[in-house]
Design a protein around this nucleic acid. Structure first.
Length: 284
DNA sequence: AGTGCGACCTGATCGC
DNA sequence: TGCGATCAGGTCGCAC
């Protein structure tokens, strides 16, 4: 049975940018604005420029974007002179490439003017996201040290098994803990666990690591192929929506039938986050 | 040491 | 019509 609270929750759950979404943006930016000089910086919310906004402006203005990369949910902009800045979109953040004359974007908080008449706009309705300047590679390295391995890159099954075996917290908490494994958030943890037929509350050291590993790899790859999930806020660097929301397996599907067994999908709260699962397929 | 929870922030929505 | 309360999300920092 669906009750009124379920419907409320259905409305309120907000998908946020994770590895596939951030990677999509990163690829588009890398194709478009590498080599561009940053000619000006505008901002209206100092908190969007973590630490000291003036240091950000001073460090970034006049610099040339050498390379754009992604680590965890961070987009990394390498500048000349071993400087860099990173962007975290958190919940509602957007990174948009626009032409200088294009109409103003809603919730724009930082705008970097670039050569070729382009602009890189950082928009964020909730103001949770941020841009952060790093004065040298050492500072950047220190920041990145806090993140676990990349699930589609340097995370082997053996390493994954090790991480799980050392943890008795729920598998969902472990999957979304950026210190342990980076890039996985609420959407792909939910869908991956559904694919692995694993209950989100099962202790990490009790689950079948190989099955969960494969499932996570699969949903992340699928999400990437679809250009991310765009239920509410997410759009890519060109302002276009992704398609993975059309392929959600359990995420946000409360009250709807399980794609495997038709059992009604349930929602519980795990570590203060909305969590969806099939009560028949995912048991422990 | 490991765990848990409040704070951050605000658009969307609901109740009154 | 409109105001106030509630909720979500990722991550940090603090308290137990």
């Amino acid at each position: 049975m669906i009750c009124i609270f379920d419907i409320l929750f259905l409305i309120f759950d907000i998908p946020t940018p994770e590895l596939p979404e951030v990677e999509t943006i990163k690829r588009q930016l890398a194709d478009t604005i590498v080599g561009c000089k940053i000619t000006n910086v505008w901002f209206d919310n100092p908190k969007s420029l973590q630490s000291n906004p003036l240091i950000f402006v001073k460090g970034v203005k006049g610099a040339i974007i050498q390379k754009i990369d992604r680590r965890a949910k961070l987009v990394i902009f390498y500048l000349d002179g071993s400087k860099a800045f990173v962007v975290h979109l958190r919940m509602t953040g957007r990174l948009l490439i626009r032409k200088a004359g294009d109409s103003i974007d809603a919730f724009a908080h930082v705008v970097l003017s670039l050569e070729k008449g382009l602009e890189l706009r950082f928009c964020d309705a909730r103001k949770f996201g941020f841009m952060r300047f790093l004065k040298d590679q050492k500072e950047l390295k220190e920041l990145l040290l806090g993140y676990g391995p990349e699930p589609l890159d340097d995370l082997s099954l053996e390493k994954f098994r090790q991480i799980l075996s050392k943890n008795q917290r729920s598998i969902k908490e472990v999957l979304t803990d950026q210190k342990l494994i980076s890039g996985i958030g609420n959407i792909y943890a939910n869908d991956g666990l559904w694919l692995a037929k694993t209950h989100p509350l099962e202790p990490a050291n009790k689950v079948d690591a190989a099955i969960v590993f494969k499932a996570i790899e699969k949903v992340l790859t699928e999400g990437l192929k679809d250009g991310g999930a765009s239920d509410q806020w997410y759009v890519n660097a060109f302002g276009a929506k992704g398609k993975y929301q059309e392929h959600f397996k359990v995420y946000g599907r409360i009250g709807k039938p399980c794609l495997r067994c038709k059992t009604i999908i349930k929602r519980i709260v795990v570590a203060s986050r909305g969590t969806f699962y099939c009560p028949k397929c995912q048991v422990f």
